[in-house]
């Protein structure tokens, strides 16, 4: 199962619903997101703001798609490690309701 789980996650597609777009305020040490639909404020650091930025078009993406979009602008290091991170962040964002399963 443990072998399968992350691999499955990488196939899962997420999207950013327009209703869930956040008000963003960068501070000197982190980024604040205000999510109007829930009234919640989230404190996040890279790569979360960058991920959300690359999802604003609303198109469904897998962790792998998103990784590749990020890799165009940033040096993410070894693909496997970075991909696992992106997948984990997407899962966390879904739990918060900031992105949804597509």
């Amino acid at each position: 199962m443990q072998q399968e789980g992350p691999a499955m996650d990488r196939m899962k597609r997420y999207r950013l619903d327009r209703r869930d777009s956040c008000r963003v305020c960068p501070l000197d040490d982190l980024v604040l997101l205000y999510h109007p639909r829930s009234g919640q404020t989230h404190m996040v650091i890279s790569p979360v703001p960058e991920m959300l930025e690359r999802m604003v078009d609303g198109a469904p993406v897998t962790a792998s798609d998103l990784h590749d979009r990020l890799a165009r602008d940033y040096d993410l290091g070894p693909r496997d490690v970075a991909l696992a991170q992106v997948a984990a962040q997407l899962e966390a964002l879904e739990a918060l309701g900031l992105v949804c399963a597509a």
Binding site: D28, L32, G39, M43
Partner: peptide, 18 residues
């Protein structure tokens, strides 16, 4: 005190932020 810490402590010090 960083802006993030200041923000967090002020939300905790506010009864009507939410």
């Amino acid at each position: 005190v960083g802006q993030g810490e200041a923000f967090m402590r002020l939300t905790q010090a506010s009864t009507n932020y939410v």
